[in-house]
Every structure is written in C-alpha cells, then in structure tokens.
Amino acid sequence: MLEYTEEGNARLRNFAYIVSHNLRSHSGSISSLITLLEEENKELSHNELFQYLDKAAENLAETILHLNEVVEISLSRTQKWERINLKRCISKTVESIAILSKKATVTILNEVKENFNFKTIPAYLQSIILNFLTNGIKYKSENRTSFIKVSSYSSGKYIVLQFQDNGFGIDLEKYRKDLFGMYKTFHNNPESKGSGLFIAKNQIDVLGGKIEVESEVDVGTTFKIYLPNEKK
C-alpha cells in the first residue's frame, strides 16, 4: 500500500507540473495576442471590455505563477512564506473578478484596513479570498441589492478576515457538519460543484488558521477566517 501511495503521489506531482507548464504557455500566448491587438488597434485601450480582458489576462498569469509555487511547495514540502499587504491582495482579487461581479450586480466592499501586513503563503491566501468572493456572488439573493463586505481585525495571535454577504444564507442546523465536505452542496444552483469550501478549508488549515461561520436563511452569511499573524 505504501508503494502504491508513493506511485500515486509521483503521478499527481507529474500531472501538476504538466498542467502548470501548459497553462503558463497558454497564458503567455493570450497576453502576447492582447499586446499585439492593442498595438494594431490603439482605440482598444479605451474600450472597457478590452480593459477587463487585459486585467483578466494579467491576473491569470499571476495565478499561474502562484500555482507553480504551490507545486514547488508540494514537492519540496517547504512552505514559502512572504510578507503581504492584506488590503492590496484583496483588491487584486476583486479586480480579477470585476466583470463577474458586475454581471451579477453584486457590490464588493473592501473595508480591510491599510496596515494589515503579515507573513503567509500568497498562493493559498489568494485562492481563499477568491473562493469566498465567488461563493458570495454565486449565492446572491434576487430579492435585494446584493453585496459582499470584506473586513478585518486583530484577535489575539490571529488576523481575522471576514466575508459578509446578504445572499441565500445556509441552514446551519441542517448542514453545519457537511459545510466543508468535498462535493457537498446546499442550494440548487447549477454552478455548485461542492469543492470551493472544501479547498478553502484545507488551505486555511495549512496556514495554521481556522474558520467560523454565522448564517441565517434568506438573510446572509458571515465567514470569519482566522489567520496566524506570523512574525517570522
């Protein structure tokens, strides 16, 4: 069984390398095409949709860079911690999904304080933020003007990152024990895959953090992400 597990892990590592390499190649091609289009059609630089496309390509390249870092972390089993500014990290993620939030008419409010700087694994943090923002967009309510408010505060040795929305809400009495399970869904949204919260919870665990949830059906949900305020 040990040999079988080691062989499976080796295959997964090879798969991760292939995926990250191929994605990097395609991302580079997309960025090059966008640059060529802009050079040949100067008016495109003032087109709102083209600006969204350019920003999306830029954020895709950054995400792939983080994916490569995750692969390296997986292989070397060493965690690469970097000092980041939480507000800027959230702003970048909000920009990357601007067209998605605009189409869904969901307002994202970044109320995180400017001075929250701490050490973390950027790839994991960005993925966590993305998961909770897209989750809030996906489960918005059609009965009211939708918003996602992101805020932060200190709590002992933790920095708390809070995501509050006014969407569908979750019946915690019924679903609390399954909330972070793989392939567990709690609404009839066809886009629900049941993997987002599972992945986010595992990444939070890797960072040495924890998560709390408050929710009321047809009122909204608040996720509180406790991340260690690393001083090293």
Rank of each mutant, 00 (worst) to 15 (best):
L2F: 13
T5V: 12
T5Q: 14
E6R: 14
A10W: 10
R13I: 12
N14R: 12
N14W: 03
A16K: 06
A16G: 00
L23A: 04
R24C: 12
S29I: 10
I30W: 00
S32N: 12
I34M: 09
I34R: 08
L36I: 14
L36C: 03
L37N: 05
E39T: 04
E40F: 08
E43D: 13
S45Q: 12
H46E: 13
F50R: 05
Q51E: 05
D54S: 09
D54V: 04
K55G: 00
E58H: 08
E58A: 15
E62T: 01
L67W: 01
N68L: 02
N68P: 05
E69D: 03
V70G: 01
I73Q: 10
S74P: 00
R77T: 01
R83N: 11
I84Q: 05
N85K: 12
K87S: 08
K87T: 04
R88F: 12
R88Y: 05
R88N: 15
C89T: 06
S91P: 00
K92L: 12
T93V: 06
V94M: 15
S96E: 06
I97S: 10
A98C: 03
I99L: 08
I108T: 13
L109D: 08
N110I: 02
E111N: 07
E111K: 14
F116V: 03
N117V: 01
I121L: 09
Q126E: 15
S127N: 12
S127T: 03
S127R: 10
I128G: 00
F132W: 03
G136M: 02
I137L: 10
K138L: 07
K140T: 04
E142Y: 11
N143W: 03
R144E: 02
S146T: 05
F147M: 08
I148G: 00
S152E: 11
S152W: 05
S152H: 06
Y153H: 15
S154H: 13
K157E: 15
Y158S: 13
Q162R: 15
F163G: 04
N166E: 14
F168R: 11
F168D: 14
F168T: 09
F168W: 13
I170H: 09
L172E: 04
K174T: 07
Y175K: 02
Y175N: 12
D178P: 08
F180Q: 05
F180G: 03
Y183Q: 07
N189S: 13
P190Y: 09
S192L: 10
S192K: 02
G194K: 14
S195H: 11
S195I: 15
S195W: 07
L197V: 03
F198L: 14
F198Q: 07
I199S: 13
K201H: 08
Q203M: 12
I204W: 05
D205A: 02
G208H: 04
G208D: 08
G209M: 05
E212G: 01
E216F: 06
V217S: 02
V217H: 00
V219Y: 10
T221F: 04
T222S: 04
F223D: 03
F223N: 01
K224S: 06
I225D: 03
E230A: 06
E230Q: 06
K231V: 11
